[in-house]
């Protein structure tokens, strides 16, 4: 039945499904379908329509309000409207304090405002709510780099590497921080792991050469 609608326009199909659900009072999946419709607009890069649909969720239960507010906040954030992003992030947290995604989002907003200490607090809180929240751990590492807390940054990235091993970006971050603090042993260890994943990267090869050179020079001296 749906293929008849899908041939014309996915939007018509969405509206048809929503109408049928409302008629049959199967409201449990209504939110999911409306969210899918919002995501359809987002994929089409029609942010205004996405926000309009998401705002229609605002009068529903608290967890949904939190999720939706967080999504709206994220949309404003990627559009660079930090004030509105902050407003909706606060709304998301007011409705569900333990929404780790909202906590990460709020941390990102503080990071964009260059309030690094508050950003770090929110990332830590997100990790407290969900210990394996990889976005929070990665961002915590990044904020630690910005704050020159390199040992803490390494700790965060190493934790991330133990949760999701062998992600090139993470391995590079760890290696680079070890290189900065002149722990050449560990820097070479992580660069070697990275080279196993990306064997043809010229900058990486050059960095390895530079590290081995520095080790040789330090031994000679």
């Amino acid at each position: 039945m749906l293929t008849h609608y899908l041939d014309k326009d996915p939007l018509v199909a969405f509206d048809h499904i929503i109408e049928q659900i409302k008629k049959n009072e199967v409201k449990d999946i209504l939110n999911e379908i409306e969210m899918a419709k919002a995501m359809y607009f987002l994929k089409k890069r029609d942010v205004e329509k996405t926000i309009t649909i998401m705002k229609s969720f605002e009068n529903k239960d608290k967890r949904i309000i939190s999720k939706v507010s967080n999504n709206i906040s994220f949309l404003y954030f990627i559009e660079g409207d930090i004030a509105n992003a902050d407003k909706y992030a606060n709304l998301a947290l007011d409705n569900e304090r333990y929404n780790h995604k909202a906590l990460v989002n709020k941390g990102n907003i503080h990071f964009a405002k260059e309030d690094l200490i508050r950003a770090k607090e929110f990332y830590l809180e997100a990790i407290g709510v969900q210990a394996d929240c990889i976005e929070a751990i990665y961002n915590l590492g990044m904020v630690n780099i910005q704050m020159d807390c390199l040992y803490e940054a390494i700790q965060a990235f190493e934790k991330l590497n133990s949760i999701v091993p062998n992600i090139p970006e993470v391995l590079y971050k760890i290696a680079k921080q070890y290189e900065i603090i002149k722990d050449f042993d560990n820097a070479i260890k992580y660069y070697s792991l990275l080279l196993a994943l990306i064997p043809n990267d010229p900058i990486l090869l050059s960095n390895m050469g530079s590290l081995y050179y520095q080790i040789n020079v330090s031994i000679i001296l």
Binding site: S192, L205, S206, G209, N216
Partner: peptide, 19 residues
């Protein structure tokens, strides 16, 4: 240095490879 190779010219290998 656990990763220090016996051949101290290892760095040349990496720079040449990069080149």
């Amino acid at each position: 240095y656990y990763f220090l190779p016996k051949d101290e010219k290892t760095f040349m290998h990496y720079f040449e490879e990069s080149y």
